[in-house]
Amino acid sequence: MTTTMTPKDFATATPSWWCPGCGDYGVLSALKAALAELGKQPKDVAFVSGIGCSGKISGYLHSYAFHGVHGRALPVATAVKLANRDLTVIAAGGDGDGYAIGAGHFLHAVRRNPKMAYVVMDNQTYGLTKGQSSPTSQTGYITGTSPQGNPDAPINGLAVALAAGGTFLARGFSANPKHLVGLMKEAVEHDGFAIVEVMSPCVTYNKINTYAWFKQNVYYLDDGYDATDRVRAFEALTAEGKIPLGVIYREQRPTLETLTHLGATPIVDLRLDPQLRELVAIQDAYA
């Protein structure tokens, strides 16, 4: 790149609606830093978010941002990529958006493997509706909608994604932005569907999974870890005890763009001409 980008180039003038201390601030700054370090231009970034506290992030990243309906960020983002493959496409949302109302799309985006990054901001609660249990809340978590304790087992999003054919699975912690920037950069560069799950504490409603709790319950995968070993990845994701951070799994397989036989010219740049000879000739088969 001829110009040097800085995280500020990806800032908007919109004041944040997040609570002070929210984990999502760390996600936003890591994303800005990653895009700047990769030399991306705001005009070439399509940033699609869902609904919830996390979904507000699209308003704070200077880009072509899209804030749609609850749970549907991935279908929107997938189509944006297909329609204009030159764009850097990033989707972001919370644990509720991705693993509850949008869980179906999550599985199918993993299967399709479009080249895009998906950031899941996991705070293990529903923040914007004032603290109900989420699909990643611990069993027994007491909230207004689960006064006797959440009866459901938490979903393990990355393990589910691994089983569904995920090609890039990473986990970070919003209190370690430096580490997170690295993960985000790798995710954006990955040639396929790259998931970055970020432990992003809710300081207002989740009094269990706090910054202090995470600090005691996470560990970083070391250099000896082989992220191309699928069985090892499944062990790391499902083992009892501490939560692994880092790139947990990666592989290469053909992207959706390849398998739908997209040409090099983005669909959006195709010339439209109703009088194309071949187009007129389609009706010969009906004569």
């Binding site: 549907r72 279908p75 189509a79 944006v80 204009n84 199918h108 669909i267």
Partner: peptide, 16 residues
């Protein structure tokens, strides 16, 4: 749900 949101995503990008 996915189908209509995909259509919206592609249209947002400028494709009919």
């Amino acid at each position: 749900l996915a189908a209509i949101n995909m259509v919206i995503g592609a249209a947002f990008t400028g494709v009919r």
